[in-house]
Amino acid sequence: MSSRVTNARAALLSLALLAAFLGAWEFSARSGGSGGGAALDPEYAALLGAAAAQGGQTGFPMPSEIAARLWELVRDPFYIAGPNDQGIGIQLAYSLARVAAGFLLAAAVAIPLGFLIGMSPLLSAALNPFIQVLRPVSPLAWMPLALYTIKDSSISSIFVIFICSVWPMLLNTAFGVSSTRKEWLNVARTLEAGRLKTAWKVILPAAAPTILTGMRISIGIAWLVIVAAEMLVGGTGIGYWVWNQWNNLSLADIVIAILLIGIVGLLLDRLLGVLARAVAWAE
């Protein structure tokens, strides 16, 4: 009861803060935006067009302009009008597809490998130095090597996603597996459950919540990295779109992209959260 009241009040406060922020933004953009083009030679302005004539200083977009632009983009998100002009939905779909491919590939490698590392102290100690050195490397540092060897920009960005999402899943899986309760393993041993059966029926469910936590961290990192990777390799995707709109100097589009990236990231995290709840267990 009291928590519902608090939730309602928190939501109200959130809305108020948002309104205040947008209001202040709108107000300051309106009052500061004018006056830049007054000193320009009108002939020069006519030659270059209004925007360029202001010396590249388009005013920072107002929330109302951004809302109008957002409506424009969202009304037809999946149009394709040429390689450089595709709907925002298509760009997001490209990015999501790359993240999904890299992430699933990483899961397919990291979870079985993490399982082995978690079960074998020897393997764990032997692989630990490699993992510790490679883990802190920015995934983008791999990009030149990927481009050189793979020779395909799209697959290279998938590889970068793979590299950045493999570590949290690997380490969490290994940790979850190695911290399986001894008593559960003893139960399996006294029941003469085979290795495979023990792994599948005891260790995997015991480690599943920890593994899911790793996957949740990974998908968050992957979604961060895909924007940067697509800015580098170009072509398609929301990261490329952001960079393209920067080159077009359409700041409203960039603000919109930031908003959409945030929302998609939130949804990805929630999706993994639902999965985590499905495998959670309580003592």
């Binding site: 003893n186 139960v187 006294t190 029941l191 029926k201 469910p205």
Partner: peptide, 28 residues
């Protein structure tokens, strides 16, 4: 080594918390 012929009742119940009571017994 361990054997199914010698069943152990552990001090802590050692039930798998992700399985129902029935699944725990069915696993054995």
């Amino acid at each position: 080594g361990p054997s199914l012929d010698r069943a152990v009742i552990f001090q802590g119940h050692a039930l798998m918390p992700w399985m129902t009571a029935e699944q725990n017994v069915a696993f054995a």
